[in-house]
Write a protein that binds this DNA or RNA. Structure first.
Lengths: 319, 319
DNA sequence: ATCGTGCATGTTACCGATAACATTATTTAA
DNA sequence: TTAAATAATGTTATCGGTAACATGCACGAT
C-alpha cells in the first residue's frame, strides 16, 4: 500500500504538504495541489486508517447495540444494519455489533442504540461518546425514526376511503413512544371523522391478536377493519378472521405496520405501513459521523415519512 | 486510557518488558511478570488497537459479505452475524458488512463470505487474505456449515417412524452443494428402507410449493409427508395442503429445514431441521482469526450437527 | 582466574499519519 | 526603502505499540 511518503516523493514535496492537501486544502497553492492529486492517483493512495486513528486518539469503530432480544426478532434489524454499515463504510468506519452484556468491552468512537426502553435511560445518559438512537424517544437523545403518527393516520384513512365502516386498533401493550405515536395517528383520524375509537392492546405476538379476533368474532360485523400496530399483530388478526370464515378483504380489512418480511410471508400479503429502514440506517450513520467529525453535542432528530405497501388485506375499491 | 508506558512506570520496568509480558511471556521471569500483571490491573490497561494495527500493518477489520440479495432474505444472516461478531469482539476485531459492490472499498485482514455460487469461484479464488466460507462448497475453500445430509436423513427418518408411508422431497432448484447434500440425506433414508424417491424442485418461494401441492392434490393420498429443503418451501406446502382441506398432521406431514423464524411464524409451526446458526457464526470467526493470527494457509472445514425442532406439522405418535 | 555462552532486560528505530513550531518567500504598511 | 505582517512550505516530535539490536549479568568450561 502506498503511503503519504510515496506520494510526497513522487510529487517532490514534503509529506506534510500531502497531508495538508487532504485535510486543509485551502492552505496549499493550486499548483501543488494538482501535483499532489496527480501523484495520489498514480500510486493509488489510500490513507492508513490505523495511523489516522492513532494520532487522533480514535478507533474508527461504531458500536451498534440492539437492546431487544435479537435472536428471535424480525429481520428488521438486519436491514437497519445494512443501512448503517453502508454509511459508515463510505467514511472508513466499521461497525461492531454488541449487546448489553458486552457493551463496554473494547473502545469505540460512538454508538447507535435501538430498542431502548425507559429503564435504559440512566446508563445511556451516562455515555460520554456521541450517540444516535434509532427509535423516537422523549428523553432528549437525538434519534431517527419513522413518522409513526403519520403512518397510522395514513393507513387508517385508506381503510376509511375503501369503505370500511368500523376501524379497530390493535396495539402493542408497551409504554414506548412509538406505540403512543401509532395510536395517536389512528385517534386523530377517528376524531376528524367523528368516529368512536376502539383500542385493544396485546404483547406483540400473532397468537394473541389471533385469539382476540376468534374470541370476539360475534361482535365484528362485516365492513370492519383492524388497524394493527405491527405486522406481527396483523398476521394474527388475518389468521383469526380466516379461521372464523371471514372474507378478506371483501368483508374484513387488516392493516399492519413495518413492512419488513412478515407482511410478505403472510397470505394474502398484508397491506401495511412500510418503513424505509435501510435509509433510516444510513441516516443514523450519517448523523453519528457528523457529530463525531464536527464535535457536535447534538444534531437534532429525523423523521422519515412512511409509505403504504399494498397487499391483499384491504380491498381495492370502495365497496 | 492507560498505555504501555503507564504500566511500565508503575512496575518500574521498560515498556518493552510489558510488551513482552503480553506477547512473549516465556521470555520474562515470573517475578517481573507478576509485577507487570499487578500494574496492568491497577491502571486497567487495555491495548490500543490502532497502535497494534499500525505496527503489524493490519486493520483488525473482517469483512462479512453476503452474496445473496440480502434485503429480502430471511433473518438467517442476522443470527450468523451475531455469532461472527461475538467471536471477533472477544479478540478486538470488528466486523464490516459489505456487499459485492463495495467489497473492495477499504482494507481488511480477512473475509467471511456466504451465499457463494459457482460463478463466484473465480474472484474469490483471487483473494489474497485469509478467508472462511459459510456454506459447504467443493472448491477447496475452508467452510463452516450444517451437516445438511444428516439433517434431512434425520427428519425423513422421523417422518417414517411417525407412520407416514410416502415421503416426497420438495427441493430447491439450484445446483448448490447444500441442496445436493439435503437431497442425499433423503435419498439415503429411502434407499435403506427400499422406498421410491420422489423429488420435485422449485425456486425457493413458498407460492411455488403451494401451487405444486394444489395442482397435484388428487395424487397425494393421506399418510404422505412432504420433506422440504427449506422452511420457505415447507410454508408453501403447508398452505397448499390446508387450502385443499388436508389435515395436518393427521393425514399429511410437512417438514422444513433451517429453523430460523419462518418455522415459527407458520401456523401450525413447522417441524424442521434447526441449524445452530449463532454457533456456526462464532465458528466462522474463530476459524478465521486462527488463520490470521497463526498465518495458516488452511484450517479445514467444520460441520455442525443439526437438531430437530418440533412443531405441529408432524404427528406425535405412530398412527 | 578468564573467557565465552546464554538469558533477562533495556534502547533505538520505525509503522503512517498529524499538530505545533520553524523557516522561508511574498506582500503590505510606515 | 525597509521593517513587519502574512502566506506557503518544511522539520520535528508524537500517538502506542513491536522488532531488532545492544547491554549486562550469571554460569560453566578451560
Amino acid at each position: 500500500m502506498a503511503t503519504l511518503n510515496d506520494v510526497a516523493k513522487l510529487a517532490n514535496v514534503s509529506k506534510m504538504t500531502v497531508s495538508r492537501v487532504i485535510n486543509h486544502p485551502d492552505k496549499v497553492t493550486d499548483d501543488l495541489k494538482q501535483l499532489v492529486y496527480q501523484a495520489m492517483r498514480e500510486v493509488d493512495y489510500h490513507p492508513n486508517v490505523a495511523a489516522k486513528a492513532l494520532v487522533n486518539n480514535s478507533t474508527r469503530i461504531i458500536k451498534f447495540c440492539v437492546l431487544e432480544d435479537i435472536d428471535t426478532t424480525e429481520p428488521y434489524y438486519m436491514n437497519l444494519m445494512i443501512g448503517i454499515a453502508r454509511s459508515l463504510d463510505a467514511q472508513q468506519y466499521s461497525l461492531q455489533l454488541v449487546t448489553r452484556r458486552n457493551f463496554d468491552i473494547g473502545n469505540c468512537d460512538g454508538y447507535v442504540i435501538t430498542g431502548m426502553r425507559k429503564k435504559d435511560f440512566d446508563w445511556i445518559g451516562e455515555l460520554k461518546k456521541p450517540l444516535v438512537i434509532f427509535g423516537e424517544n422523549r428523553f432528549g437523545f437525538d434519534y431517527v425514526d419513522t413518522n409513526n403518527k403519520a403512518g397510522t393516520f395514513m393507513i387508517s384513512n385508506l381503510a376509511l376511503q375503501r369503505g370500511y365502516k368500523r376501524l379497530i386498533f390493535i396495539g402493542m401493550d408497551s409504554r414506548e413512544s412509538f406505540e403512543y405515536s401509532r395510536e395517536a395517528g389512528y385517534l386523530q383520524l377517528l376524531q376528524e371523522n367523528q368516529m368512536l375509537a376502539e383500542i385493544h392492546r396485546f404483547d406483540n405476538h400473532s397468537h394473541l391478536s389471533q385469539q382476540f379476533v376468534i374470541d370476539n368474532w360475534d361482535k365484528f360485523e362485516p365492513n370492519t377493519c383492524f388497524i394493527c400496530a405491527s405486522d406481527r399483530l396483523a398476521l394474527g388478526a388475518e389468521r383469526g378472521i380466516e379461521s372464523c370464515g371471514g372474507l378478506i378483504p371483501k368483508d374484513y380489512g387488516v392493516t399492519g405496520f413495518d413492512g419488513v418480511f412478515l407482511n410478505q410471508v403472510a397470505f394474502p400479503q398484508i397491506t401495511t405501513v412500510k418503513q424505509a429502514i435501510v435509509e433510516m440506517g444510513m441516516a443514523c450513520g450519517d448523523k453519528l459521523l457528523d457529530k463525531i467529525v464536527n464535535h457536535l453535542d447534538t444534531s437534532g432528530s429525523l423523521m422519515f415519512e412512511p409509505k403504504i405497501s399494498v397487499g391483499g388485506t384491504i380491498r381495492d375499491d370502495v365497496k
